[in-house]
Design a protein around this nucleic acid. Structure first.
Lengths: 214, 214
DNA sequence: TTCTAATGTAATTGG
DNA sequence: CCAATTACATTAGT
């Protein structure tokens, strides 16, 4: 846990999900629609940024879905728009279905807070496309962040600075390849991820080094 | 999918995202690449071979599908021989530091293909009963693995360490979902991290934490 | 369909 | 910061 960022104090209030593109879903696998956040019902999320989680995932179970089309082309995913992007699943396992809102014992737990929505756990956030794009772009410019950049990005993305930081870390880690010359030489290959072995040291690509300007 | 390793040296350059599979008649939604952002648009991808298809679990077993019986007891076919259960080159860099017996470099000769003996068991491994049992047993002792355990188990089971790791992950995930009564399964309360629902994390029990002994 | 092996990625931990 | 892992969500194969 350890919230280590103390960032901004602004409050963010947003309406999440309104991108109601149709559900495609079709029959099979209701797990189909997920990321799109589509079928989440519009929900309000209010959060103190810099505090706990902005991405609050209001889990609402989904009951009947509309299931309109099957069109595969409906692959577009959501875009963000405002803060929330949640991934929550709500898709409870089949076996639990039936019991609405299996709200199993609360057992209060720890000390803290008012975490109210219970989304205390690790709950995974899914970045929206736009968010990823921005991060990606930013990454291309610098694979490391200075505090200011971090703050700014966080603000723009409506993420906690910590999340931005983590994203960068993971990004650096996952590909040992940076947007370096390889990309310059082959711009079209920007999406090409040529990984290197993690522990390789003789790579022709070097690990980028710090960028401290602020 | 991302290319992540380069055990062998051959390079493959291909057009990605042109799903070669035929149109699915059914609705199935090949939603394969979706939120992945990365390859949403047709793009070129360059990959090192050795990836792409994962392990071929050389299921020799019955040549051509003899599969004579439906007898449930026939459950233990598979992987009879000690033959290394795979030939995969992908081995995502198990970083096992000191292990020198990294048997990577299988360098499958890609194109040439191996599936000649019929029954080219392609993907998805199925663990044998014995394997599952061992894993299960091991899990009872700790729900997480330290590198050594992983390595050992992998050796004993003739699986890649990564597979062992994955098994544990999945196992943990599955069970975090189990309600209390599942304690019966874990008589000694070894793994009593009863998380209830998947998305709920508070519990009087804490998540088991690292087991680092090695 | 369910179950499970596997993958991708956000987040945590320890150094 | 980095490496390694874990949790988690989701995909795909039978």
């Amino acid at each position: 846990m350890v919230v280590d960022d103390l960032c901004n104090t602004s409050l963010v209030l947003g309406l999440s999900n309104f991108s109601s593109t149709v559900e495609r879903t079709s029959s099979k696998k209701l797990s189909s629609q997920k990321y799109d956040g589509k079928n989440c019902e519009p929900s309000l999320t209010l959060s103190l940024s810099g505090e706990t989680y902005d991405q609050i995932q209001t889990v609402k179970k989904v009951d009947s879905d509309i299931k309109v089309s099957n069109d595969p082309s409906a692959d577009f995913y959501r875009q963000d728009s405002a803060a929330s992007s949640f991934s929550n699943g709500s898709v409870k396992r089949e076996r639990e279905v039936g019991s609405e809102e299996v709200e199993i014992e609360k057992v209060v737990s720890r000390v803290s807070d008012e975490d109210e929505d219970g989304s205390n756990g690790r709950k995974k956030l899914r970045l929206t496309k736009a968010q990823s794009a921005l991060l990606e772009e930013s990454f291309k410019q610098h694979s490391t962040l200075n505090p200011k950049q971090k703050q700014d990005l966080a603000r723009d993305l409506k993420l906690r600075p910590r999340q931005v930081e983590v994203w960068f870390q993971n990004r650096r880690a996952r590909y040992h390849l940076q947007p370096m010359e390889s990309n310059k030489k082959f711009p079209l290959f920007n999406n090409m991820f040529v990984y290197h072995e993690k522990n390789r040291t003789d790579s022709i690509f070097k690990k980028p080094r710090k960028n401290k300007e602020n």
